[in-house]
């Protein structure tokens, strides 16, 4: 109990400076620490799957994306904002206070015990044939949500590439990094990827029956791809490569095909044939992991740039 209160206090104490920080870099650094504490809170709530995702995607990957954004913003002209007038400040204050009160009221008005679908999930989990209820929900009962999530990542990559200047279209994404021939980064970029790939495959594989799954595994795979790029010992492929585009799209396409197979065989979109549910889910998850990993890495790399100097 005391430990939980301490974690909550630490989360609030970190959330405030994230909002109040003057420099974007400070805010992002604090946001990453905030995400890791949040992951800790999810562990305390026995939501290990959520904790893994929060640490890998919420703190890790989002942190890297935000750091890149902060760096790009720092290079541009400073934004001149006129300070808000007194009436505007008062309006913002009243609006925020109203929202806080409304949220508090809604949370206090929740029925007790909270409405939960946990029991129907556990009663029907045998039909999905996986032991981890989170995976059963994500790939079975709410498979459509996961399908749309995966499709959003493809759209995000398309939107990012749309930012590329015409002259750079089809070139390799991201800035070229100076090669690190010795030192810690070069060593890490050579030693860590084999270990990281094994860990990622493990997390993907145990996701069927224990905490883990494709998003967490994909975030680790993406990091293992980005590490040699950061050390300058591997260059990302040009975005005109057909295999790259096929890998990005393969996951959602495989998921949609599995969905239509359900329509034909079982009479409902994303319904899995009895006896083959686990096999279909794992096959789709493996392809999805590859797609998500490549999409996440490409999002971090950014659009192909004209000026490819360091």
């Amino acid at each position: 109990m005391i430990a939980d209160l301490l974690i909550v206090a630490a989360i609030v104490a970190l959330a405030l400076p994230v909002v109040l920080a003057r420099s974007a870099f400070t805010a992002v650094a604090l946001f990453v620490a905030y995400g890791l504490l949040l992951a800790f809170a999810w562990v305390r709530l026995d939501a290990v799957d959520v904790a893994l995702t929060e640490a890998a995607i919420g703190a890790g990957l989002s942190g890297v994306l935000l750091l890149g954004a902060a760096r790009r913003l720092a290079g541009g002209p400073p934004v001149e904002d006129a300070p808000p007038g007194k009436a505007q400040v008062a309006l913002i204050g009243v609006g925020c206070a109203g929202l806080a009160v409304a949220l508090g009221a809604v949370i206090l008005a929740l029925p007790d015990p909270a409405p939960s679908l946990a029991e129907p999930v556990m009663a029907n989990i045998a039909a999905i044939e996986v032991g981890n209820p989170v995976t059963a929900v994500l790939m079975g009962f709410r498979g459509l949500d996961t399908l749309l999530e995966a499709a959003v990542l493809v759209l995000a990559v398309v939107a990012l590439w749309a930012l590329a200047p015409d002259a750079a279209w089809g070139a390799a994404p991201g800035w070229r990094q100076p090669p690190a021939t010795d030192g810690p980064l070069a060593l890490l970029a050579r030693v860590l990827p084999p270990i990281g790939v094994v860990v990622a495959v493990h997390i993907l594989w145990v996701g069927a029956d224990a905490p883990g799954g494709k998003f967490q595994a994909a975030a680790i795979l993406a990091a293992m791809w980005l590490l040699p790029w950061m050390a300058g010992i591997a260059a990302p492929p040009p975005i005109s490569r057909a295999w790259l585009r096929i890998v990005i799209a393969a996951g959602p396409v495989a998921f949609i095909l599995a969905g239509f197979a359900g329509s034909v065989l079982q009479g409902a979109f994303l319904a899995y044939p009895p006896g083959y549910a686990k096999a279909v889910i794992i096959a789709v998850e493996v392809v999805l992991t590859a797609s998500i990993a490549v999409a996440l890495a490409l999002l971090v790399l950014g659009p192909p740039a004209e000026d490819r100097g360091a």
Binding site: G183, P184, L185, L188, L192
Partner: peptide, 13 residues
């Protein structure tokens, strides 16, 4: 071991 390796790499950087 992984924390050792990552902090040993991040420290000098």
């Amino acid at each position: 071991g992984l924390v050792l390796a990552s902090s040993a790499a991040a420290g000098p950087m």
